[in-house]
Amino acid sequence: MNLQKLLTGLAAGLLLYAQTGLGSVWAAVPPDAPKDVKHILGFYYGNGENILIRENNGRLELLYRFAESDKAFGGANIYPLTKEHFDAYLMTEAGPMSASEAKVRFERDPDGYGIACRVGGHTYSRYFFGQGVGERAKAFRFPAHTAEEWTQLRKQAAEAVMPEMLAAGTAAQLVDAVTVAGIKVDSRYALADNCFGAPLYTTSKLMLAKEAAAALAKVQQHLAPYGYGLVLWDAYRPWSVSKLASLALPVNQKGMLDDPDTKGSAHNTGAAVDVSLYSLATGEQVEMVSGFDEPSLRQFASYAGGTARQRYLRDLLRETMELYGFKGIEMEWWHFDYSPSTNWAHLNVEVR
């Protein structure tokens, strides 16, 4: 290959890099953080203030936010911590006119979980969000219903009629998700291991619009060189299931889901998916910043906490999905809508 061809090839590669915006994807995946470090990462509060401790490429950082409305800590000040010895660090704040230092120490419970962070003379208590490495709280569940109550709710949802206005638009041709080569189907609402604590579906089969399935196949191919594949947690959801979920919600938490009688769910169209990643080498699902359906700060797509590896994998997923026609949302890092500008019709077709 002559020099001109080499330069032309490099220029083309740089152009593709710039056009796709996959800067974080091209970087090497960060190494995993040790478990003892993960056990002190998280959200701490006290003195009317909130701080976040995260790992960033082998080093701890303290993030201080000024506005509680900054849910993802995107505008927080970042202070690197220099380790002195186990659970003892030094935080240095340097400026053009002055500099200051503060001792940062962590307290753990007998199981090794961080429960407090002392910064100088101030103590911040740990708030646990949910299950996961470093989080000792139980997985989120809505208040449980009895078997008899679920039977009544299912009957009520099955008898409900989807509003005609929701049927307007392009009706998707649904295909089985297993037709997408390499994708893993882990239907979270087919079993009881979900936020409702009960299965909402009568089958573990997941369907989706054929256009969305074709796009997921491209995502799968794109991810393979990085060593990852897609895990599909949810896809098409019949309108009656959205109605069931809404009926099952406590009265004071009805706003957590879109009203099925006025707006419906994007999942009713077959063009919305909830996805994560799995390792091609091990077949295991990767560790993300938060769990599925975890109503916490960690669910935000731009959440600044966790480990560098977790954030990398979350961003790899998002950037690759959006490269092939999907659009993510800020509230849930796992949720994506295919071709959101299309007026997809809501469907109420039972999956068998």
Rank of each mutant, 00 (worst) to 15 (best):
V286N: 08
N268Q: 06
W334F: 13
G325R: 15
L323Y: 13
F326W: 08
T262C: 06
S302H: 15
A308K: 08
V289T: 11
L277A: 06
S341V: 15
V286P: 03
V273Q: 00
Y324G: 10
E322L: 02
Y312G: 07
L317C: 11
T307I: 07
A272K: 06
D274C: 06
D315R: 07
S341L: 15
R314D: 02
H335W: 14
S302Y: 11
G328C: 11
V286C: 03
T320Q: 08
D293L: 11
S296I: 07
H335T: 10
Q285C: 13
G270S: 05
A272M: 15
F300S: 11
Q310V: 09
G264E: 04
L297W: 06
S302D: 15
D274N: 05
R314S: 00
G283M: 00
M331R: 14
L280I: 06
F336S: 01
E322N: 00
F292Y: 15
G283T: 00
V273R: 00
Y312F: 06
G283W: 02
L280R: 07
N268C: 05
S265Y: 01
R298L: 09
A271Y: 08
Y312M: 04
M331H: 15
Y324S: 06
A271P: 00
S296E: 01
E284T: 07
S279G: 07
M288G: 03
L316A: 08
E332Q: 13
A304H: 14
V273Y: 00
V273K: 01
A272L: 07
E284M: 13
A271C: 10
W334V: 14
S265G: 01
E332V: 08
S339Y: 13
N268H: 09
R318N: 05
P340F: 04
T269M: 06
Y278T: 06
Y324L: 11
G325T: 09
R309N: 01
M288H: 02
M288I: 00
D274I: 04
D315F: 08
D315M: 07
F300L: 14
G305D: 10
P295A: 12
G328S: 05
P295L: 06
M321E: 04
T282K: 12
A271M: 09
D293M: 14
Y278L: 03
T269W: 04
W333I: 10
F326D: 04
R318Q: 08
R311M: 01
L277F: 09
